[in-house]
Design a protein around this nucleic acid. Sequence first.
DNA 1: GTGTTTGTTATCAA
DNA 2: CTTGATAACAAACA
Length: 298
Amino acid sequence: MPELPEVETIRRDLEKVILGKKIKSVILFDSKTARNKAAFFINFLTNRQVVSISRRGKLLIFEINKKKEENESMYLLVHLKMTGQLIFSSNKEYLLGGHSSGDEALKRSDEDRMLVRHTRSVIKFSGGGTLFFNDMRRFGYLQLVTKSDLEKIKKNNYGPEPLTEELTIDYLVNILKNRSTNIKALLLNQKLIAGLGNIYVDEALFLAKIKPSRSGKSIKRKELDKLLIAINEIIASAIKNRGTTFNNYVDSSGRKGNFLSLLKVYSRGGEPCYKCKKPIKKIKLAGRGTHYCPNCQK
DNA sequence: GTGTTTGTTATCAA
DNA sequence: CTTGATAACAAACA
């Protein structure tokens, strides 16, 4: 479940290995994976290079180089949704996705088999290096968009990011003061704050001592002060620890994140709260598993 | 077969 | 128009 810290970890790592590399070929094993027509998607990317890699919320944005005669750059969007992975390998160019069989499949190591089982697309670079897009559940997608499309997407779908000047206490007060919905659902809403998902919302609410079922408008300014600090603290710490691997997430080298053991409430239903020893409660809120301490969170 | 997992969007209601 | 609530998607596992 890649949220902001996991996507940011991938962004930073990929920046080091694929910037400036020329795309030699693109394979789409599953036509649903690219939101563009397959032929266009493949033809456009071939022989181009990635100029920059940015991120908005959980969305990765690869800027593709523009030819002289073109007046607008194109951008490759990558959304991992729940089970997407972007894995770069400098030596495993022979992996051919989930559709090959026979001798080729037999030659694979167990590690390779895991890597390739749900490969939906592959981008190969000149001079070595292959980027695998794996996605067991097939919620994730790749999409080429124009600069103006990208600006629209950013503007219409994403609120301010944690750890930026845009996410202020005044902003929080404003978006929550008239909301009757529970704070859990509001924090999951990408249009209000970009990048939080189920894990870090539960963790931030625990740190801020706020019960997830509280309505937005019921939360006092003093509590919002704490919530803002908690959100930034959790996100910063999770980035520092390269994200949380609960089941599917791995970084662009295929390695797990280190934040799992630092979780205070998520996935700890029934276990004792680290602070007060009373059992962590697990409920369903906003259609999501929600974990909190009934004693510490008011 | 049943319930559970979640990021996001569709859909419907008010 | 906004807001809210819920189902739906997809695949795997206990």
